[in-house]
Amino acid sequence: MIPPSDFIHGPWRAVPVLGVTQILAWGGIYYTPVLIVPMIAREHGWSMSFAMGGFSVALLAAGLSAPYIGRAIDRFGGHLVMTAGSLLGALGLVLITIAEHRAAYIAVWILLGVALSASLYDAAFASLGRIFGAAARRPITALTLAGGFASTVGWPATHFLTEAVGWRGTYLIYAALLVVIAAPLHAFLLPRERFAAAPPPTDGIKAPDKVLPARGWPFVLVAGGFAVYAFVPSALAAHLLAIFARSGIDSDTVVWIGALFGPAQVGARVIEFAFGRNLHPLWIARIALTTLFTGFIMIAVLGIAPPVAAAFAIVFGGSNGLITIARGAVPLALFGASGYGRLMGRLAFPFLLVQAAAPLVMAAVIDGLSDTAALALACAFGTAALVCFYVIRRPA
């Protein structure tokens, strides 16, 4: 058991602090484009491809800046770097409300991309690795439980706000939340000390005795596995519900099916937190990707009908929830806590690049071939990730 005092005076207070700030960053910056960018495109007379391309540029900027963000967290701490990320995010949200020129619009998204890199899971995991060292797996899992509610909170809140105050007012409100809540939480409540040198934990978790060097084939397989997997959630988040609708499922049912993703994601993380602590993170990744592969086979064999689509949404959500944990836990278990922030930045770079490209590639396959071919492509990327994680061997 974790002493309650650790959530107030000890290192575990990082988890609720980052839990709140993750919901604000994901909900205010990452999840808003799907609802707000169409409004921006209509108002400025821009094409949807250009307007949404700004968000892709942001993800590209996030990937390019991720290694530097990770190194900065290792050196200075998340309390400084993530505070800067919150303030940059707020500045970007304010500037996007006054960006009238196309070049200014893209420039603001580049700024927001750097803010995302310093605000989302990769930065939070790096901060937890600096604070907890080799014992960071449970805090990482606990954090993802809170982060899993970001879309559940963010999309309804954005919908309500855009109806009430318009898209500009919505972005200004989110900017204020980042300045008034997220930045102070990072600056004043996120632990500053390095807890990696503390005595081993007493809850049955033992730090690994041997680690692999973060280079060569082990690193390539880990980076490649997560990068190719990044295609799956990014592509499906953009196109899966539309594919279900084109298959003949009515719009109300499609929305209901989409709502299953969030709870399935959180449910899988709860199970891992409760029962998976003694299971090596590599097996968490393998189990998740095997389950996802089974879901794709189910759709191929049974076709897309409401019960099958609902089952796939649950499988997809649960698998993605576990992979999010594995993104933080696998590098820690294989390569150790030394330089963990820099390592997470190096791993985030290819992940975010693939994530940025996936919706565009998926759209091209749908337009040029078919929905079936697009789902097969997503399955192929997931299978490639599964192969990477089965090939990796943990230290003896």
Rank of each mutant, 00 (worst) to 15 (best):
G341I: 10
L292E: 11
V57I: 15
V34M: 08
F335D: 04
T152N: 03
F50V: 03
P395N: 07
R13K: 14
P184Y: 13
W283P: 01
V315L: 15
T97Q: 04
A66C: 06
F296R: 02
A62N: 13
L282K: 13
V266R: 05
D122N: 15
I23C: 00
P201F: 04
A310Q: 02
A66L: 05
V15Q: 03
A214E: 13
F389G: 05
N278Y: 12
G321S: 10
A150H: 03
Y229I: 00
F312D: 01
L60H: 07
R71I: 02
T291N: 05
H239L: 05
A374Q: 10
F55V: 07
A329C: 10
T324M: 14
A356G: 14
L322T: 08
A364Q: 13
A107M: 06
G328S: 11
L240Y: 15
L190P: 00
A245S: 14
W12R: 05
S251A: 13
S49V: 11
R342H: 15
H239W: 09
F226L: 12
P139Q: 09
C379A: 15
A378K: 03
T372M: 09
E163Y: 10
M362G: 00
W217F: 10
A115H: 06
A310D: 01
D252N: 09
A288V: 02
A183Y: 14
A135W: 12
A385V: 09
F160A: 15
L145C: 09
E100D: 07
T152C: 04
G303W: 10
D203W: 15
S127P: 02
G216I: 12
